[in-house]
Design a protein around this nucleic acid. Structure first.
Lengths: 168, 168
DNA sequence: ATTTAATTTCAATAATTTTTGAAAGTACAA
DNA sequence: TTGTACTTTCAAAAATTATTGAAATTAAAT
């Protein structure tokens, strides 16, 4: 396989994977391109490589910066902006975990805590099943939340060691 | 909060969360309803509670069964089918992890292995960055894959212990 | 065999999400 | 202050995804 073909396949696959996880395809493709590029790219570069509009690039770059995955570089004497991405996949994973936790898991934990507070009507099957299920989900969500929190703070090598013990 | 309001909020929130993770809203809502229902429900029940069409219920139930999250119950002497869901959230999480791993992570690992095989052109920044990034992603994806595999096989209580150690 | 009670399928439609492109905005340089 | 080189915004259009509903299918009961 040629390098160019490999790059294209990677960018394509990353976009497809992203949609399966609720992330916009183009955003993932821009991120993929920046991750494999040795130097920062301009809006024009991204427009050309992905064959998409200026507005599309601009909006998705903003989202990627909001996610803390892409950064802007300003070069003295140049007006246009250059963009680059963190290339260490472990740092990227930690950042994604951090953001999804804040944006999505935290509100769910809050709701589950409220729902746990609804009084149980003893003898009422509906009420009892509802409570048992919410309790069960609550435990798992809090477990996942704790796991993400732990993973976020840890080094990749440390996780590997823990994992090996767990797999034994 | 009333029980009915609590149920509605849960079903609603579960649907919203699902879309953020690439899962169809209605599928998640049907699953949520079945998880909090003490007894199996019919297609009619689901149509009425979610105000959706028969075809929609039928298709989403099939998907849920394909995911191994919902099961069919046939009652002797009755023609219509009853559906119920696994209520243990840890088992549900394990099943989801198992399926996503098989459907999404495995193909990605296969691709990354192919891309790792593309020869590096020493001195070529493009080629070197591409390889370094693919290697980095590959390590993290394999780590995540291993973590999911370990979690899938473990008991909830066991995970908690490991997690506490990791958090310390 | 026919009727009946259900489920499934899928083309058409609706809803949602993404993308475009041109106008508005920004800010540097002359 | 005007021009220039760029970025951002956002309403409209396009693309994608989800839903409907009626016809086809299935299979049990008569």
């Amino acid at each position: 396989m040629e390098l160019q073909e490999a790059k294209d396949r990677f960018v394509q696959a990353w976009g497809t994977l992203a949609t399966q996880w609720g992330i916009n395809r183009t955003m993932a493709q821009i991120h993929a391109l920046l991750m494999i590029s040795p130097n920062p790219l301009t809006t024009e570069d991204l427009m050309a490589q992905l064959q998409i509009s200026r507005g599309n690039v601009s909006m998705n770059l903003r989202d990627l910066m909001d996610w803390g995955l892409v950064f802007k570089e300003l070069r003295p004497g140049e007006r246009k902006e250059y963009f680059f991405a963190e290339k260490d996949a472990w740092k990227v994973a930690k950042q994604v975990a951090k953001e999804r936790r804040r944006r999505e898991i935290e509100p769910v934990i809050k709701l589950l805590d409220e729902l746990r507070g609804v009084p149980v009507r003893a003898g009422d099957a509906d009420s009892e099943t509802f409570h048992a299920t919410i309790e069960s989900i609550s435990r798992v969500v809090n477990l996942a939340d704790g796991a993400l929190d732990a993973a976020m703070k840890a080094e990749e090598s440390l996780i590997l060691g823990t994992l090996i013990k767990l797999l034994r």
